[in-house]
Design a protein around this nucleic acid. Structure first.
Lengths: 136, 136
DNA sequence: GATTACCCTTACGTAAACGTAAAGGGTAAT
DNA sequence: ATTACCCTTTACGTTTACGTAAGGGTAATC
């Protein structure tokens, strides 16, 4: 009953190669079921892949993403590691704040670049008209 | 008169190695003046380095950063490339929006992870007290 | 004058994240 | 039964962004 996906299904959906998906498994980020030799991915596996790719967009290494997954795993029990875990989380939160800030600044700068670009375009249009008018 | 910086000045300020800074130059992202053999960096060079590092935090490759610098350069004149330039800018803006979105979601998730973590900690504290009270 | 602290170039090494064959098996339509 | 398309594993190759010696010059300091 549960929906399943082949490796190419997921590869197509998320625009990655099947090689990449196998690589994530090799690195311990995915562990799909098997049907014979073939990999069979559950909706949970699919989400997991989605998270990996989001992590990548944010500049996380695969190791970091794997570590984050462990934060969400029921297997986390170990109490002594809870403080370490909090530090990890805090570090990630700090990085994200920094990135957020970086993005806002860069968006402003790109807006300015766009304006200058449009300006330059409209002026080259004016020049064209001028040349036409003056018969050059 | 103009303030200048040595390579180690900048390396210390931005917490990168001088090797890295030389590498950026090798890739055409910086071109400091020279005094004899030694590199001499102007305030402009310093800003440039700052931008490179910000780009890196946002997942830009050095090639992409170099391309962005060209968008801001007075040497940009070429009119035919203005449209290509606008496309490049738009693509970057789209990526940044996506990243912004990714960050917001991940911040929420990290907040939740933190809460669960603190919860687990306080419960392990309660257990401790309980064990102490009951003399185990 | 020897140590310390910079600076340089050249060049090989490396980690991460796949790309890219090579060689083969499974099944479904033509 | 052959074409086509899926799947597999093994394994070497590649790009990016530096790290890490190795070897040598300069300038201040003890």
């Amino acid at each position: 009953m549960g929906k399943t996906y082949s490796i190419t299904d997921l590869a197509r959906e998320f625009d990655v190669t099947s090689r990449a998906i196998r690589f994530y498994e090799e690195q311990g980020l995915l562990s799909p079921a098997r049907k014979g030799q073939a990999r069979v991915y559950s909706p949970g596996d699919r989400i997991r892949l989605k998270l990996i790719l989001r992590g990548k967009r944010l500049g996380f290494t695969l190791d970091e993403s794997r570590e984050l997954f462990e934060l969400y795993d029921p297997a986390s029990g170990n109490q002594k590691q809870l403080l370490t875990m909090l530090e990890t989380i805090q570090a990630h939160k700090n990085n994200l704040s920094q990135q957020m800030h970086d993005i806002q600044i860069m968006q402003l700068e790109l807006d300015e670049a766009e304006q200058r670009c449009r300006q330059a375009l409209s002026e080259s249009q004016k020049d064209k008209h001028h040349r036409i008018q003056s018969g050059v």
